[in-house]
């Protein structure tokens, strides 16, 4: 259940209310202002924002725009984590190192809770960050692949609408698939 608040040093680097950030980074690259669905304002470096295909195409349509870009489907909490990922990613753009990139990606998902991962998926999807979506889907798959049916149901918030007879039949049909499942 970690949120950006539990990770103060890291998130402070990335996301700050626009008023504070202006003075600190006056010399640095161009900033893009983004507004989340819960009305939080984020100022991110242009290079990071261009990782978001959705935002990139917004500026391709209106190159000189200085407006705040609204992100109606993106809540602040997962968004700050997405920015964290993209900041790491652009380092590898200049300096491709697949091993190091893999290590960094697995480090990124390792410290996230199940909820963090599931919340980031729609954000990564909306912003069209393919690499992140891949990493997140793989991380979720890794977390559920050896788990029981009950665990996976609670992971995704699924209601079991089978009768107990139907479920027993399904388990019987594929009994082998229910062997050697990790303890919850």
């Amino acid at each position: 259940m970690s949120s950006s608040a539990e990770n103060p040093t890291l998130t402070a680097e990335i996301t700050k209310p626009s008023t504070e950030i202006a003075t600190e980074t006056a010399q640095s690259a161009k900033k893009i202002t983004l507004k989340t669905s819960d009305d939080q304002i984020f100022e991110v470096e242009e290079s990071v924002a261009m990782e978001f295909a959705t935002v990139k195409s917004f500026f391709e349509d209106a190159p000189s725009s200085t407006d705040t870009v609204p992100l109606p489907n993106v809540p602040a909490k997962p968004f700050s984590q997405v920015i964290e990922f993209c900041k790491e990613q652009i380092k590898f753009k200049a300096n491709p190192d697949e091993t190091e990139k893999k290590r960094s990606n697995s480090e990124f998902v390792k410290e996230k809770t199940n909820e963090d991962l599931v919340e980031m998926i729609p954000v990564a999807n909306y912003l069209e960050i393919k690499d992140l979506l891949d990493v997140l889907n793989q991380a979720v798959a890794d977390r559920i692949q050896n788990r029981s049916v009950e665990y996976v149901r609670s992971f995704f918030g699924i209601d079991n609408d089978f009768t107990s007879e139907e479920e027993a039949l399904l388990r019987e049909e594929h009994a082998w698939a229910f062997e050697d499942v990790d303890e919850d």
Binding site: A141, Q145, V149, V152, I158, E167, R171, W176, A177, F178
Partner: peptide, 12 residues
């Protein structure tokens, strides 16, 4: 594959 087959019993 094994997990996918197990997932068929999550819900209808």
């Amino acid at each position: 594959i094994k997990s996918l087959v197990r997932c068929t019993s999550l819900s209808r």
